[in-house]
Amino acid sequence: MSNTEALNNTRNLVLRLLNDIAPEADLTSLRPDLSFRDQLDLDSMDFLNFVVALHKEFQIEIPESDYPQYMTLNGCLAQLSAPRS
Protein backbone atom coordinates (compact mmCIF):
# COMPACT_ATOMS: atom_id res chain seq x y z
CA MET A 1 0.00 0.00 0.00
CA SER A 2 1.40 3.39 -0.97
CA ASN A 3 1.68 6.23 1.52
CA THR A 4 -1.15 8.10 -0.19
CA GLU A 5 -3.43 5.10 0.06
CA ALA A 6 -2.55 4.57 3.70
CA LEU A 7 -3.25 8.23 4.44
CA ASN A 8 -6.59 8.04 2.63
CA ASN A 9 -7.57 4.97 4.62
CA THR A 10 -6.69 6.67 7.88
CA ARG A 11 -8.58 9.77 6.81
CA ASN A 12 -11.69 7.76 5.95
CA LEU A 13 -11.54 5.90 9.22
CA VAL A 14 -11.25 9.13 11.24
CA LEU A 15 -14.20 10.59 9.33
CA ARG A 16 -16.25 7.48 10.02
CA LEU A 17 -15.57 7.75 13.76
CA LEU A 18 -16.59 11.42 13.65
CA ASN A 19 -19.73 10.50 11.79
CA ASP A 20 -20.60 7.99 14.52
CA ILE A 21 -20.41 10.79 17.08
CA ALA A 22 -22.08 13.56 15.03
CA PRO A 23 -24.29 11.69 12.53
CA GLU A 24 -26.09 14.84 11.39
CA ALA A 25 -22.91 16.79 10.57
CA ASP A 26 -21.84 17.44 6.98
CA LEU A 27 -18.31 16.08 6.93
CA THR A 28 -17.70 16.93 3.27
CA SER A 29 -17.30 20.59 4.14
CA LEU A 30 -15.02 19.91 7.11
CA ARG A 31 -11.97 22.21 7.11
CA PRO A 32 -9.03 19.94 7.96
CA ASP A 33 -7.06 22.70 9.65
CA LEU A 34 -9.81 23.89 12.01
CA SER A 35 -11.03 22.36 15.26
CA PHE A 36 -13.77 19.71 15.07
CA ARG A 37 -15.29 21.10 18.23
CA ASP A 38 -16.33 24.36 16.62
CA GLN A 39 -17.21 22.93 13.22
CA LEU A 40 -19.18 19.91 14.38
CA ASP A 41 -20.45 21.38 17.66
CA LEU A 42 -18.77 18.64 19.68
CA ASP A 43 -18.81 19.02 23.45
CA SER A 44 -16.23 17.60 25.84
CA MET A 45 -18.15 14.33 26.16
CA ASP A 46 -18.25 13.93 22.35
CA PHE A 47 -14.56 14.67 22.08
CA LEU A 48 -13.73 12.19 24.83
CA ASN A 49 -15.78 9.56 22.99
CA PHE A 50 -13.87 10.41 19.81
CA VAL A 51 -10.40 9.92 21.33
CA VAL A 52 -11.56 6.72 23.00
CA ALA A 53 -12.80 5.53 19.57
CA LEU A 54 -9.38 6.36 18.08
CA HIS A 55 -7.76 4.44 20.92
CA LYS A 56 -9.86 1.37 20.19
CA GLU A 57 -9.62 1.59 16.40
CA PHE A 58 -5.88 2.30 16.14
CA GLN A 59 -4.79 0.51 19.33
CA ILE A 60 -2.99 3.59 20.62
CA GLU A 61 -2.73 5.18 24.03
CA ILE A 62 -3.31 8.92 23.93
CA PRO A 63 -2.26 10.80 27.06
CA GLU A 64 -4.68 13.55 28.02
CA SER A 65 -1.95 16.13 27.45
CA ASP A 66 -1.93 15.12 23.75
CA TYR A 67 -5.68 15.58 23.27
CA PRO A 68 -5.29 19.09 21.72
CA GLN A 69 -3.31 17.53 18.86
CA TYR A 70 -6.36 15.47 17.89
CA MET A 71 -8.74 18.39 17.62
CA THR A 72 -8.30 18.89 13.85
CA LEU A 73 -8.39 16.41 10.99
CA ASN A 74 -4.85 17.37 9.95
CA GLY A 75 -3.71 16.96 13.56
CA CYS A 76 -5.22 13.46 13.75
CA LEU A 77 -3.60 12.41 10.46
CA ALA A 78 -0.20 13.73 11.57
CA GLN A 79 -0.45 11.85 14.87
CA LEU A 80 -1.81 8.62 13.41
CA SER A 81 0.66 8.50 10.51
CA ALA A 82 3.73 9.20 12.64
CA PRO A 83 5.98 6.19 13.25
CA ARG A 84 5.24 4.74 16.65
CA SER A 85 7.82 3.62 19.12
Binding site: S44, V52, H55, I62, E64
Partner: peptide
Protein backbone atom coordinates in the same frame (compact mmCIF):
# COMPACT_ATOMS: atom_id res chain seq x y z
CA UNK B 1 -8.15 15.88 37.80
CA UNK B 2 -5.10 16.00 35.53
CA UNK B 3 -3.18 13.74 37.89
CA UNK B 4 -6.11 11.41 38.40
CA UNK B 5 -6.58 11.04 34.65
CA UNK B 6 -2.88 10.37 34.07
CA UNK B 7 -3.21 7.31 36.26
CA UNK B 8 -6.40 6.10 34.57
CA UNK B 9 -6.74 4.04 31.39
CA UNK B 10 -8.18 6.00 28.48
CA UNK B 11 -11.62 4.49 28.79
CA UNK B 12 -11.93 5.46 32.46
CA UNK B 13 -10.87 9.07 32.41
CA UNK B 14 -13.09 11.62 34.07
CA UNK B 15 -14.60 14.73 32.59
CA UNK B 16 -14.26 17.94 34.54
CA UNK B 17 -18.05 18.38 34.44
Amino acid sequence: LKQANEARPMTERLLYG
